[in-house]
Design a protein around this nucleic acid. Structure first.
Length: 186
DNA sequence: GCAGTGATCATA
DNA sequence: ATGATCACTGCC
């Protein structure tokens, strides 16, 4: 598996996170997404948001991961190679935004729970007008939604690792510290 | 504390 | 075809 080093070799190099960033173990990707910039393009306007809260969902053994019951039309995007979005609808009201990670065949993804100024995954998608239209799309400028290196260094001591929200049904997996929260103002 | 809201999937 | 479930939010 290729490893993303985060190095920027030239000033002209795009700061859009490449597929290699996402094709790593999901917990590492989740941790590293803190401080990165989610960019949404709506009618030519770029909305930039700093990611401050995420959750990792790790493969078929993880009972909290949608893919734990196998590949279905809904979970298919998680089985693809990292770097595409997995967007699904829940509770009849809310869209959830995930970025798929790891290699093809290993279903894992990071749920983007919050950005600076917006807490809560449902509020985030509502504010950025993210819907199922983005499901399965690559995290590139062409898709209108992507993630950039923001140049923000998030110290390990500023990262709280907590149990994930809303997965009490997942037994022992509910207690795993797969929720990553960056304690920043707002 | 809990109602709302509708896609999804297992069961039949 | 039916029904349980749901990675949430907003109002009581």
């Amino acid at each position: 598996m290729r490893c993303y080093t985060g190095s920027v070799k030239h000033a002209r190099t795009s700061s859009v996170l490449p597929p290699a960033f996402f094709r790593r173990p999901v917990a590492a990707v989740a941790r590293d997404l803190l401080g990165k910039v989610l960019v949404r393009c709506i009618n030519g306007e770029h909305i930039r948001s700093v990611i401050c809260e995420v959750e990792a969902y790790d493969g078929m053994c993880d009972r909290a991961c949608h893919a734990c019951k196998g590949k279905t039309p809904r979970t298919a995007p998680m089985f693809a190679a990292g770097g595409i979005f997995y967007v699904y609808f829940v509770y009849g009201m809310h869209w959830m935004l995930n970025i798929v990670t790891s290699d093809v065949g290993y279903p894992a993804a990071v749920l983007i729970r919050g950005v600076r100024g917006i807490a809560g995954p449902g509020r985030l998608t509502k504010a950025l007008r993210i819907t199922g239209a983005l499901n399965g799309k690559a995290a590139t400028e062409r898709s209108g939604l992507w993630i950039e290196e923001g140049g923000i260094k998030v110290a390990t001591r500023a990262v709280r690792r907590l149990p994930r929200i809303g997965v009490a049904y997942a037994g022992a997996w509910a207690k795993k510290p797969y929720r990553f929260l960056w304690e920043c103002d707002a």
